[in-house]
Structure formats: structure tokens, C-alpha cells
Design a binder for these strands. Structure first.
Lengths: 328, 328
DNA sequence: TTGTAAGCGTTATCAC
DNA sequence: GTGATAACGCTTACAA
């Protein structure tokens, strides 16, 4: 392994000079700096990030826990965030929890072991509260995105309640009354759904709600609900559920929007290509709020921190997956 | 920050005992181990990965450079690989090159600074050869996937040449002669395309080839080619190009497969939902070969290493995006 | 402006 | 089985 000592020897300087050559705002002559950099390049030396962090007690690393890698929404956010934090001289350590609290704990432990300066994550549940509190005690900044499950942590979420309200309202306005609402647990979409029904004096039927972790059971329940309850419309809680719905429609031979109207959550390329109406969140906006909140706190004293809970309003993009029943 | 010293003090043992409590196959009494672990848990201590690595000169980290995060193919592979290496006690450091050699170099430097034990990457070009050679000199294992651009590096690739041959042959067998072939630079698909034409005594027209980095210029050229050359079929080199093609078809009002037949590369959910014929690679198989190659080398002496170049055969999944011109 | 040396948190080595 | 201590590669007072 090439160390700063090797470079120092090669360039005929001390190790501290080598160290100085690799940082800004530090006293070093142009001449020596160039000499060191040339030697480093010749030897293929890169400063050891771990030794650096050990000394400075700052890893300059942000950890992110992605709950669901199949959901392109999270991937997009990760891409934006990585880009932003790289500009600020940080790196991103990406882990996958798969919406499983046990794996989430593993991720948290890995990030803790890596002594990350901050963690961005979508809590799968409140299961790991104790460990999260310990991390906070150790001055690790923790930001929740997408779901706000800990009221003492910063959060940047989409206003899903309002999104669901808009979607339900849009369907009601087009004459739908039998609407199935789907989502994963721990969401607030159902509240918006209920509110819209109430406002229009429509009955709320709990059998029209499918809230389950994604997986076979979800697909099965959904498929049965479509067959037996014969709804005129479905609202999909996220990208993964969306693909279930389209699969089921194909299997049951239901045409969208002739036999069944659909509104999905989280726009993407194939949803747009399939001309499906969505509740859309701006990924850029969400990502920007995440990184700006992160760096604001990272660069100020802990005493001055105040909780920031940001809720971003979605928009409804009307395409052609909702039938107007009144014009039948 | 909680260190092993804090835990040692709390549990009334030495730091060495704390260290021993956190590893297997080492002499320590059950009693002390439990005592230490309890203290650690109470204090919220996690061993500092960086200090450990610094000492052991092993980061137990594998780096991966994802060329294109928009391409779900790479995301799937990353997911599998992460899972596998985690089982082996390693962690995955994920970086994004965006097919840009300059960013690729940044990624390589970051991974080098992190002293990863191995790197999995799809080379964007041969631009960074010098730096890659330096990394190899420093005993960092480097594996190429998807593209084999360095003949002295291990590689696990799909047989794209054969895939393109199959796709072209399939189209020819269905009566197509005007076939546009698309891909990103540095690929070998064009060779398979040419071979299939040759075998069927069809002329090879270079104007039917669009090989460019993905982006606006690509879309523009492709759109023009479809309008002016009026091909009966297109082969898409990857997921990203695939979405361009569908967008263009929509804009130009070409129905698939009535007006234009399409074969895509790399199967995924929406391609399958849209009933499009694909050249498909098994992501599981590719990932397994990557991890098994990785660990085989990681666990043996460098002297015993021999180059492994694995080429995986794809399959053609015929769906309904190719018109049979003979049956017109 | 440059060099010397201590120390970051861990583990390996060696006593006990 | 357990504890003291040196060392990993780097940064940073402090000295020169």
C-alpha cells in the first residue's frame, strides 16, 4: 500500500508536507505542492480516507437507507442527493432495508460503524427507536424522508394525505363512487381518501381499503377485491403497487380506463408512456430540501438547531386513465 | 463519541477484552463477553469501522461503479450483489459514473481513498487505464461487468454479440430487411447484427446504425432515422434507448408492431407489461458470477489467480412486438 | 514555510 | 483468559 510516507520519501519532503499538499487553505509553497502532487500521481497515491476520518473524527460521509430499491422514486432521489453532497465534498454510503425493520437495524449499525455524519432514511416503522435515539446522542444527524414516524426528527415528506384527497376528489368528480384505495402500512393516504368521500357525502367502506406490505398477499387481496367488489376506480399508493395493478388488469382482462379507472402515485417514464393519471411529487424539490436541511444543520452548532418539518404539496397530472362516467 | 475505552471503563475490563467481545474465534469467557456486550448496548457503542480497517489494512468494503442509474438492469445487479457480499461480511460502496470518464475517475479515486478490497465496474471507456493499473498494483481486485474493455481484467459479460445476432435473425425470419440497430459506444452488438445480415445475404447499410452516447443527440438522430429511412424494425441496445424509442413512436404515431417492429435488450416489468419481445439476460446469474468470482479471488493468494472471462448467453423471449411480414 | 511528534480507535503481540 | 502497549496512516499543534 502506498502511504503518505512513501510519497514523502519520493518527493524528499516530510509527511506533513504531503498532507498539506492535499488540502486547501494551508501554508505550502506552490513549488513543493506541485512536487508532492507529481510524486503522488507517479506512485498512484490517494490519501487514505479512513485514517483521515479517524484523526478528524469526521467521516465526511452521509448514509442513506433505501427502503425499496424496486421503487424508482427512491433511486431518483438517491441520484440527486449523491450529486449534491458530492459537490459539498461528502460521499454517500447507500444501504438497503427492503422495508424490513431487522434489515433497517443492520443498515443503521453499518452506518454507525462507518461513523457517518448524517443519515437520510425512510423509517420502516418505529421498531428501531432505541438505536436511533442512541445515534442522535452521538451527534449523528438523522433526517426522515417520505414518512414522518418520529416527531423529534427532521422530516421532509410529501403531503400524501392531500395527494390522496386530490386523487379521490378527481375520481368523484368524474362520477366514481366505488373506489379502492391501496397503500403500504404507516401511510396517511387513507385519511385523504376518507376526507374526500366525506366531503362528497359518500359512504366509507373499509372493505375498499387494502393496506399491506407489498408482496404476494397484497397482490392476492387486490386481485380478489377487483374481482368481487367490482370497483370503477383504484388509487395506487406507489410505483410497486402500480405494477401489481397493471398486471392484475391484464390477467383479468380489464381495460384501462374502459373497465377500470386508475390513478397512480409517483410519476415515471412508463407511467407517462402508458398515459396514466398520477399524483406527482417533484423529486428535484424533495431532494433539494433534503440536502439543504442536511447541510444547514451540519454546518451549524447543535444548540442552534431547530426542528424542520417540511411537507411538499403534490400535483395531479390528469392523463387518460380515468373514465368520465357522467359522459357515458 | 463512544469508544471501546468507554465501554471498557463501564464494564470494568480492558480495551482488548472489549475488542475480543466483538469478534469470533478468539479467547474470551462467556461471562465477560456478555458483560461487555451489555455495556456496549447500554452505551450505544458500535465498533469504529475505520479504526478497524486502518489497523487491519482490510476495509471489508467492495466498491461498485454504476454507469447508469436510470437503467434498472444495473440497479437489479447492485441489489443482488449487495445482498451477497453482506452475507460474507462485506459492505458495498456504491458510486455513479453516469457513463462519463471524468466522473468515473472521481469514483475510482473515491473508492481508492476508501481502500476498498475490490471494485466492480462497467468501464465507460479505456480513458482511465493508467489509474486502473495503479489500483491493480496496490492489490485492489478489479472486475469488469457488462463490457470487457480491458483484456487483463476479470470480466463477466453478457454475450451481446450473440444477443444482437439472435434479435436480427428473429426479425429476418419474420420478413424484415430494413432494420435499424441502436447502441451506446464500445459495444459489440453491431457485430452480431452484421453477422446475421451476412448469413441471410442481406446488405449492410451503415446508415441503419445509430451508435451514440444516450442523450438528446441520440434521440434526435433516431427520430430522424425513423422518419426518413422508414425501417420496418428496430433493435434497442438497452433500457434507456428503449424508452426513447417508445416516446418517438408515440410522437410519430407509429403503432407497435403494426407500423414498426421492436426488439429490446434487458427485460423488465414494463417491457413485459407492454408485451415487447426482448433479448433477456438473467440478472441473478450475472450477479452470482460476479460475487463468486470476487470472493474466489479475495480468498486466495494473488499468485494463484487466473484470469476469468465469463460470457453469459442470453435468451430471446418472443412476445408481440414483432410483426410477421410474410403473413401480411 | 516546513518538520517533528502526539494521538485518533482499533487490533496484534506479548507478557502475565 | 486477560491486560498493557505498539502500530496502522493521517492531521495538527508546536517548534524551528
Amino acid at each position: 500500500m502506498i502511504t503518505s510516507r512513501d510519497v514523502a520519501k519520493f518527493a524528499n519532503v516530510s509527511v506533513s508536507t504531503v498532507s498539506r499538499a492535499f488540502r486547501e487553505d494551508v501554508y505550502i509553497s506552490k513549488e513543493k505542492k506541485n512536487k508532492v502532487l507529481a510524486a503522488a500521481s507517479k506512485l498512484g497515491y490517494t490519501p487514505n480516507h479512513m485514517a483521515k476520518s479517524l484523526k478528524s473524527n469526521k467521516s465526511h460521509t452521509i448514509g442513506i437507507i433505501i427502503t425499496d430499491i424496486e421503487n424508482s422514486f427512491y433511486i431518483q432521489i438517491t441520484k440527486f442527493v449523491e450529486n449534491e453532497i458530492k459537490k459539498a465534498g461528502y460521499r454517500l454510503l447507500i444501504t438497503f432495508s427492503n422495508e424490513d425493520p431487522e434489515r433497517e437495524l443492520e443498515c443503521l449499525k453499518l452506518l454507525s460503524a462507518s461513523r457517518v455524519d448524517g443519515i437520510i432514511f425512510t423509517p420502516s416503522s418505529r421498531t428501531n427507536k432505541d438505536f436511533i435515539d442512541k445515534l442522535r446522542d452521538q451527534n449523528i444527524l438523522i433526517i426522515q424522508t417520505y414518512r414522518n414516524l418520529f416527531d423529534y426528527l427532521d422530516s421532509i415528506v410529501n403531503d400524501d394525505e392531500y395527494g390522496a384527497y386530490m386523487a379521490t376528489k378527481h375520481l368523484i368528480d368524474h362520477g366514481h363512487t366505488q373506489i379502492i384505495m391501496t397503500d403500504q402500512p404507516n401511510g396517511v393516504k387513507i385519511n385523504g381518501y376518507q376526507r374526500a368521500l366525506l366531503e362528497s357525502n359518500l359512504p366509507f367502506d373499509p372493505n375498499n381499503i387494502i393496506i399491506l406490505p407489498v408482496g404476494f398477499e397484497f397482490q392476492d387481496n387486490l386481485s380478489k377485491a377487483i374481482k368481487t367488489r367490482n370497483p370503477s376506480a383504484i388509487i395506487s399508493g406507489n410505483n410497486v403497487i402500480s405494477s401489481y395493478i397493471l398486471k392484475i388488469c391484464e390477467n383479468l382482462n380489464r381495460n384501462v380506463p374502459k373497465d377500470l379507472s386508475i390513478i397512480m402515485y409517483d410519476d415515471n417514464e412508463w407511467i407517462s408512456l402508458n398515459d396514466i393519471t398520477v399524483v406527482s411529487h417533484s423529486i428535484e424539490r424533495l431532494s433539494q430540501h433534503i440536502t439543504s436541511t442536511l447541510f444547514k444543520k451540519l454546518n451549524t452548532d447543535k444548540q442552534e438547531h431547530q426542528l424542520s418539518t417540511i411537507k411538499l404539496e403534490p400535483v395531479l397530472i390528469a392523463r387518460n386513465s380515468v373514465k368520465n362516467i357522467y359522459r357515458q
